[in-house]
Simulated scan of single mutants.
Amino acid sequence: MTALDLRREITARGFRGHCSTVRDRIRRDPPRQKGFTPAPPPPSVRQVTGWLTRHPATLTEEEKPNRKAVLDRCPESASAAEPTSSFAEMLTTDRHPGPAGGAVDRIKMLERRLFGRARFPLLRKRVLLA
């Protein structure tokens, strides 16, 4: 049905507007068939980036199928998703440096405290005595 046909029909029912009014209304709100449901909007770039770069265990049950759908539609992102997920997992894993880390932190603290005032011999003495 064209805008002109629709205008003729509603003019018979008392509409006194111009044909351009009908045309603009049809362009803005196109007629839909019964039972028609529009497709959901595509995910934003930010959402997809979050699905691909976050630790896999932190995805919600709603996000997991969305991530899978994106990976199924785009082979390039599917090939990049595995290394990205493993990298995210590596960054979020709790790792402690152990006793060596504590010694390094103590030396760095002494270096900061003595910065600009002391030379290596005083720093060496502080490290050995601390």
Results as ranks from 00 to 15, higher is better:
Met1Cys: 02
Thr2Tyr: 01
Ala3Glu: 01
Ala3Arg: 00
Ala3Asp: 01
Asp5Thr: 10
Arg7Gly: 00
Arg8Phe: 00
Glu9Gln: 06
Glu9Ser: 06
Ile10Tyr: 00
Ile10Glu: 00
Phe15Lys: 03
Arg16Ala: 09
Ser20Phe: 01
Val22Glu: 00
Val22Pro: 00
Asp24Thr: 03
Asp24Leu: 03
Ile26Gly: 00
Arg27Tyr: 00
Arg27Thr: 00
Pro30Thr: 01
Pro30Met: 03
Arg32Ser: 06
Phe36Asp: 05
Thr37Lys: 09
Pro38Ile: 02
Ala39Gly: 14
Ala39Ser: 15
Ala39Lys: 14
Pro43Thr: 08
Ser44Asn: 08
Gln47Trp: 09
Val48Trp: 10
Val48Met: 11
His55Leu: 04
Pro56Trp: 02
Ala57Asp: 15
Thr58His: 01
Glu61Thr: 09
Glu61Tyr: 04
Glu63Ser: 12
Lys64Tyr: 04
Asn66Thr: 10
Ala69Gly: 06
Val70Cys: 08
Leu71Trp: 07
Asp72Leu: 13
Cys74Ile: 03
Glu76Ile: 12
Ala80Asn: 06
Thr84Ala: 13
Ser85Cys: 08
Ser86Glu: 10
Phe87Arg: 04
Ala88His: 08
Glu89Thr: 14
Met90Val: 09
Leu91Asp: 05
Thr92Ala: 11
Thr92Lys: 09
Thr93Glu: 04
Asp94Ser: 13
His96Thr: 13
Pro97Tyr: 05
Pro99Leu: 11
Gly101Trp: 12
Arg106Ile: 09
Ile107Lys: 04
Lys108Glu: 15
Lys108Pro: 04
Leu110Thr: 09
Leu110Ala: 09
Glu111Phe: 08
Glu111Pro: 03
Leu114Val: 12
Phe115His: 13
Phe115Thr: 13
Gly116Arg: 08
Gly116Tyr: 05
Arg117Asp: 15
Arg117Gln: 15
Ala118His: 07
Arg119Ile: 05
Phe120Ser: 11
Arg124Ile: 14
Ala130His: 13
